[in-house]
Design a protein around this nucleic acid. Structure first.
Lengths: 150, 150
DNA sequence: ATTACTGCAAATACTTTGCATACCG
DNA sequence: CGGTATGCAAAGTATTTGCAGTAAT
């Protein structure tokens, strides 16, 4: 497992430091589109020396090397996703949670926009963001406060 | 013209104050997805007393009443769009400019996601964001510095 | 030794909030 | 008069930057 992560980073031209491996592993095992804050808050419990600066530095490197994508469905913070193949994101306006939406269900055509030229503009990235009320909140469940990190 | 704007605000339940009318007029005539900063910077030249707080307050009211939509294609600031029917947005990674992409060209199906229930989630908003190199930058034109407000 | 990863603290940028004042019906 | 729009200044939050220390090749 550890070797898989090391190899993944190396394959993308990222020096596999201890911290970077931990952060990447965290992203692989927490597919909740965490923010830099959340990534740091969780990992620092295990590695108390980890600084938020390193998280920001690392995310910048991962982004540049294509190891993660930035999800800007929020208006005030960037979230990160290590699952880089195309899929849509849904944000619940009640509880704030961000869900993955598989592309077949949502918009099978959106993905094909990447690589095309549209109205003269060369498209390299496609992001499909949906908002609304999630399945749990629709049933009367979950309040925003429930989402706060434990 | 002024009366059209007044009526538009009233129809959406927004008290048509002088500032609000100016801001809404600005949004109608500047379809460049301006940020709060840009809106303020431009209008303050004509109305020196306008504060940035009022711009933020006004945008919050406009959003709540559905007069504008928020474009969160940027990672660090919210842009506003008075053209509220569905269309995609394209951001040039070279010059930073945000373009409108009409829905027929981009993704005729995306719009129909609104109102539907997808994977159990009730969808109320759909945003399609594209990024890449715009037609002007592709031709070797425009640098980022050219975009800075005059 | 040289390069580059890390982390603290300060700085920056966008936005919100508290509160006093001014405007309008 | 009473509600609300406005604006200043301060606070808050996410992120970046400068720079010194540290690890690794």
């Amino acid at each position: 497992m550890n070797d898989d992560i090391r190899e993944m980073l190396e394959r993308h031209g990222v020096t596999p430091s201890f911290h970077r491996m931990k952060i990447y592993e965290y992203l692989l095992t927490h597919r909740t589109h965490p923010s830099a804050e959340e990534i740091h808050m969780d990992i620092v419990r295990e590695i108390p020396t980890l600084s938020k600066t390193t998280v920001y530095n690392t995310m910048k490197v991962f982004l540049a090397k294509g190891l993660v994508t930035a999800v800007t469905i929020e208006e005030d913070e960037v979230r990160y996703d290590a699952y880089t193949s195309f899929h849509a994101h849904f944000k619940c306006l009640a509880c704030g949670k961000v869900y993955d939406i598989d592309k077949a269900t949502s918009s099978p055509h959106a993905e094909s926009l990447a690589g095309r030229t549209i109205q003269g503009h060369r498209v390299t990235e496609v992001h499909l963001y949906l908002r609304g009320i999630c399945r749990i909140c629709a049933k009367g469940g979950l309040k925003k406060s429930n989402l706060k990190r434990i």
